[in-house]
């Protein structure tokens, strides 16, 4: 399956899942599992991870506590719908992250006519590691400079100012590079 077709199906899933009745959710979950098994088997491994099972267990417990007055049939149907929704959404997100690469996403954006966003995403993917590293360094220095958490919150504007100034410097460097090699983005 191509990234474009996958994204169309993903959009359909997001549109259907919140409102679908139980039989539709069962069919959708079955189809999603089948697709995951054939197209992105790694995505199914998530369901065996302890943190995933633990958080689902906690949510189920929380819901059972919150619904003490409802009849058992209603509680069971609700629980079923919730578990199926969670399964479908988590599975589709895992498939998206495993099988749709940033490069494929750029190609899809171009094909959709979003020609402005495609070159921006390309630039952004180059910039992300540097900016993430910059932010982590700035935060580490800020935490050393202001050890108290309460003080840190008060001085957050100062931290943001330092981040913005560093980002502006990177943007000016990039402007220069783009000007030297300028041609209209494809």
């Amino acid at each position: 399956m191509t990234a474009g077709r996958f994204l169309v199906l993903f959009a359909a899933t997001l549109a259907v899942v919140p409102w679908a009745p139980l039989p539709v959710l069962v069919a959708w979950a079955f189809g999603s599992l089948l697709l995951g098994w054939r197209w992105a088997p790694g995505a199914l491994r998530l369901f065996a991870k302890p943190w995933f099972l633990g958080s689902v267990g906690l949510l189920v417990l929380g819901m059972l506590v919150l619904l003490p007055g409802a009849p058992p049939g209603v509680r069971l149907a609700w629980l079923g719908r919730f578990l199926l929704r969670a399964l479908i959404l988590v599975l589709w997100l895992q498939m998206l992250r495993q099988r749709v690469s940033p490069a494929a996403l750029v190609r899809v954006l171009r094909r959709l006519g979003l020609s402005g966003l495609a070159p921006l995403l390309t630039l952004s993917l180059f910039l992300l590691p540097r900016l993430v590293e910059d932010l982590q360094e700035s935060w580490a220095l800020f935490s050393l400079w202001v050890p108290s958490r309460r003080q840190r919150l008060r001085r957050l504007p100062g931290f943001l100012a330092s981040v913005v100034v560093r980002a502006a410097r990177i943007a000016d460097d990039l402007t220069l590079a783009l000007t030297l090699t300028w041609r209209e983005p494809e």
Binding site: L120, V132, D134, L135, A171, T175, L178
Partner: peptide, 19 residues
């Protein structure tokens, strides 16, 4: 589609994501 606009959009959009 001016180099400076693209550069600032890319940097600040990425910064938002990185944040």
């Amino acid at each position: 589609r001016e180099p400076r606009t693209l550069a600032y959009l890319a940097v600040f959009g990425t910064l938002w994501g990185a944040w």
